[in-house]
Nucleic acid binder design. Structure first.
Lengths: 239, 239
DNA sequence: GTCGATATCGTGGTATACCATATATGAAGG
DNA sequence: CCTTCATATATGGTATACCACGATATCGAC
């Protein structure tokens, strides 16, 4: 848990100069954001990782009272990131394989709907921007820079969802993203997946450009369901 | 707001007899459930309806302190049921037409995925149960008992989602259901919609029985997207 | 009578003290 | 040395007091 506590440097430290304010967010929201980011940046599937949180400890680390911390933790609990066990402690949740697969399936449902909506509502310019995300991979295979590719991969999916124009879907997908990203490190390592992934993405872009609603939807769904199947087969380390 | 406060009778009133306990839920959770149900049962689109809540008032109504109330309200806020405006008050949110449509689209995405999963994983027995939901409407047209039909309608969609077997999708859909149910009264009134709805449902059941994955998914999606289109055209009263 | 400054109040935000209880700890007895 | 029971402790849950700040009302001046 040190990794989380230490990430949490300062919050209320007086803003250096004027204009800095607009700091109108409540301590609860600040704590929420901070904790969420900290959890997202923690490799919770590392068996060594300590997953227990401590209200009082967070209190001193953030320099605020228990109240905003507790409210922030309540939100995180509802979002499925942590679980509080009365008189035992608060624990970051490791998702089981089943839960991870369900999240990916849900993702597939939402992103394919976004793709459908994109073919109906997005502008040509917006769709065209999708191609630029892969410009840097035109000449060299993605296996040479997996890390960058992984970021571009996430950016692509996020962009497709944004094209759909549904705030609701974007919001719902954000949290799924955080959860799924936690096992990204493990799943991307197979470089052949990255190569096939790019092909899929290009096909999706083509379908969007041609305004082929059904095809775009189907390709998007299948692409993500493939990930679910892959996780099912190759991620035995998940509970 | 009286309608909400008055709904809220008692919580900690001593359980009548023994065995009643297992009341292990925290006051926060009790308040959360109570408030959520109260909001769900309130016709928030009635222009007359008072939408403002008051922490202190809820405090006295529920007989608990502000702390669990506030934590419950935080959760409801994150779920999009209320919005707290500092120094102004806490308000139940009326969804705009756009938001309502987005929620229905999201519903369509999730339920169609559930239908897909159902064709792959559900047992024949489970699928067969779907037909029983409409037994009572075999002989008389649904227009004669719209209220019962409305319940059966919701039961059908809930059942399809359950057949998918994804806890995650079921959870996510619960809240969507509550939001969408709020305008149900207005949309069901067109009796022809109810009649067409039943036909759609029967087709969906057939597709599920035949394990036609693509068809079940497509019919389910289209059926719900039709509702979205209907709301878009006929629910001008939404913001 | 109208506009503006000031005081009061209502409201959500925060800090803190207190409580209940499961778990841990250790002493006593066998 | 093991078992058992009593006490201590840690931890999440709850109640409450206080605070900051905006809104509104009231009063005064022009």
């Amino acid at each position: 848990m040190n990794s989380i506590v230490t990430l949490v440097q300062r919050t209320t430290a007086a803003t250096p100069l004027a204009l800095a304010p607009l700091n109108a967010t409540s301590l609860r929201d600040q704590a929420y954001t901070l904790l969420k980011n900290a959890i997202a940046d923690t490799d919770i599937y590392d068996p060594q990782q300590e997953l227990r949180l401590d209200e009082r400890q967070l209190t001193t680390a953030l320099g605020v009272s228990r109240t905003p911390i507790r409210e922030a933790l309540s939100l995180l609990e509802q979002e499925g990131f942590i679980r509080t066990v009365p008189r035992r402690g608060i624990y970051i949740i490791r998702k089981s394989k089943r839960e991870m697969i369900e999240m990916i399936q849900m993702w597939a449902a939402l992103e394919s709907m976004a793709a459908r909506l994109a073919t109906l509502n997005a502008s040509d310019e917006e769709i065209a921007k999708l191609r630029h995300l892969f410009d840097e991979f035109q000449n060299s295979p993605p296996s040479e820079h997996l890390c960058e590719y992984s970021d571009a991969n996430i950016a692509f999916h996020t962009a497709v969802i944004a094209l759909g124009g549904s705030q609701m879907i974007m919001e719902a997908t954000k949290n799924l993203m955080l959860h799924v990203r936690a096992i990204r490190r493990a799943t991307i390592s197979q470089s052949d997946r990255a190569a096939r992934s790019i092909i899929d993405h290009l096909k999706i872009i083509e379908a969007l450009e041609r305004r082929d609603t059904e095809l775009a939807e189907r390709l998007t769904r299948q692409h993500t369901l493939d990930l679910a199947a892959h996780v099912d087969l190759h991620c035995g380390f998940l509970g």
